[in-house]
Design a protein around this nucleic acid. Structure first.
Lengths: 220, 220
DNA sequence: CCCTGAGTTAAGGCTGTCTTAAACATAAGA
DNA sequence: TCTTATGTTTAAGACAGCCTTAACTCAGGG
């Protein structure tokens, strides 16, 4: 899952980036509204965390511009202002959720999970597909009742695929959602990790669409 | 929009029902968890507003039961408890949003709007013609309920033909839409792929117009 | 009956994918 | 700090499946 974090606070921004990174998110940080708005228009993010109190351009304005451009990426708004009118403004501008500062990281993570789940029409909080259950806490999967440990990169790849079951995902898409910033694409990391995942979760869980990409989902 | 409101508070329940009614929502009120759970299983509500502090059955339990039964109706949770751990529990149980009491009606309305907006964004990218359904995600066709896998070139050919059912499509047209660059025309690629498609989707789906081209569509 | 266009099939070549191993990075422990 | 273990990335050869072609057969129309 690749996240865009728009936050000008020099302390909070990097701190959040680090702690979200530990939970398996690839995070790109924008420290002002103009950069953030441009980055948010790229079609590679699964979620945006947007601070309203930006120095150059109001977060609300950024959000309105996105929505005016038919960009409907899920946006979670952060703000120090706690007046309820401000929250309503945020929703009017097209926010999907709202979290007043200060907040606990656990609550931010919970709201992020809920938003991502909702964006993919998931029902339960645990991500489940084709007999696999992804455990967000231990970064592992349950398969046939047994827990299978995953490494960080394996977890990021599998989670993205399980969020999009039955869809063809190109190698470019997968790379973009596994890593932040870096843009290179002349390697075969995806193929290598697909191989490892298949070994761990069963070869039949991921099918290859030659020339198109990979599809997560049993049978086919 | 029809809303299910599960709220035991004798004052707040009717009050909310009235004010939501003024905003154009049809609201059914359940005053306890058991009734609420049963009503929520009917497939008529667009959104549920669920109070956690119910006398007979915990709202969390109601929510878990719905989710266990594959009911994925959007649920907005209300609660008097403001501890952040409680919110995280709510999300884990499958809530889509969470609003601590006390709240302003405007904020509730704003969150309802955001939830409903997101719930209605179901994307169906399926093309149907003559009993075949083309699945753009998996690049396959459903025929008589069974999925038939297509290779890349087969898919491009069939997609173009299904986009133009009942029309005579010349071989030149077909080649041009199957390939990006090519200008050559001295091969029998089209005939070869028509053959493969007929084998996969049924001979009768594509009829030949001698000297003119092919027509997609059952019967003829 | 001839000619033209369509159907059928199989073989070769090519491109993308799989697999393996080794180099590299990182974190934990002595 | 050095060592060790674990995870990540790169590179290269093996492999498989798809694409394309070519040769032959078949059917329709004049």
């Amino acid at each position: 899952m690749r996240i865009l974090l728009v936050e000008d606070d020099a302390a909070l921004g990097p701190e959040l980036k680090t702690s979200l990174g530990k939970h398996g998110y690839a995070v790109d940080l924008a420290v002002n509204g103009v950069d953030g708005e441009v980055m948010g228009k790229e079609d590679i993010y699964d979620l945006v965390i947007l601070d309203l109190g930006l120095p150059d351009r109001s977060g609300l304005e950024v959000l309105r511009n996105w929505r005016a451009g038919k960009n409907n990426i899920p946006v979670l708004v952060l703000t120090a202002r706690s007046a309820w009118q401000e929250r309503v403004d945020g929703f009017d501008a097209g926010a999907d959720d709202y979290l007043p500062k200060p907040f606990h990281t656990e609550e931010l993570l919970a709201r992020m999970t809920a938003l991502l789940r909702r964006a993919n029409q998931q029902i339960t909080s645990q991500l489940e597909a084709s007999g696999l259950t992804l455990d967000e806490n231990t970064q592992s999967v349950i398969r046939d009742g047994a827990e299978v440990a995953l490494t960080g990169t394996e977890y990021r790849l599998l989670r993205y695929m399980m969020h999009n079951p039955g869809r063809v995902l190109s190698k470019l898409q997968l790379v973009e959602h596994m890593y932040d910033d870096c843009a290179e694409n002349d390697s075969n990391v995806v193929e290598a990790y697909i191989k490892m995942l298949r070994k761990k979760i069963g070869h039949e869980m991921i099918s290859t669409k030659r020339g198109q990409g990979y599809v997560f989902g049993a049978a086919g």
